[in-house]
Amino acid sequence: MTLTTEASRGVPLVEMRDIRVAFGGVHAVDGVTVDLYPGEVLGLVGGNGAGKTTLIKTLSGAHKADSGEIYINGERAVIETPRDAKKYNIETIYQTLALAENIDAPANMFLGREVLTRWNTLDDRAMEQAARHVMGRLNPMFQNLRTAVRSLSGGQRQSVAIARAVHFNARILIMDEPTAALGPAETAQVHNLINQLKAEGIGIFLISHDIHGVFDLADRISVMLQGKLVGTVNRREVTKDEVLGMIIIGKLPGTATKTELAELH
């Protein structure tokens, strides 16, 4: 399915072309091509083991792709480590949150990118202040920043992981199941944040099992099944059932038969 709007939007922020990753003999990601435009939320959905997280790890530098190319603003980008990804202002909120539980929120926010004094020592106070500033916007109720992450609630941990991405001015944001561990109020908060960041022109990859959440937030939806891309659709042009059909039986809208769709329910 081709999208007529693409041409008018110019150069995509991110283009991942023909990405392949294999673990042993298993093709976790098998020739997937996706793109993302500024100010857009691309929902990346699929069942367990569809390869969503593996695909996105090649963009965040957590995993090297076996083949395929990544273009940022139309230019070829080489991303082999998380450091490389950060150079391109790609920030990732991992499903596991990737927090060191024994250190506090500011230390986690700045992990690997610490603020230093002019004597090259850690400037913990500056980092705490910056963390308070970001947190005031994300989660004003969260005040005890200097306690170890171990003793924080799920929502607070999530806001630490998000604060990390927001503070460093992400242009490309990857969110892997950002609301999986959250209650309804906190989920709503994250949804507001996504809309806010989108309005600022940030491109967001949103990986989720939660098809309802994706339908609320995404502009386009890419569906993966068994390592392959089933297709990318405009959210306004499809129904949830059609997307479910793509996720479960791998058929594009209009190609699945009535009986196949009926079996989904």
Binding site: A62, R83, T96, A98, A100, I103, L111, G112, R113
Partner: peptide, 19 residues
Amino acid sequence: GRYVFAIGGNPEAAELGGI
């Protein structure tokens, strides 16, 4: 020192943080 503690707390997070 901070990195040593971060690695001890969560080696994967330390790696993903670019350490």
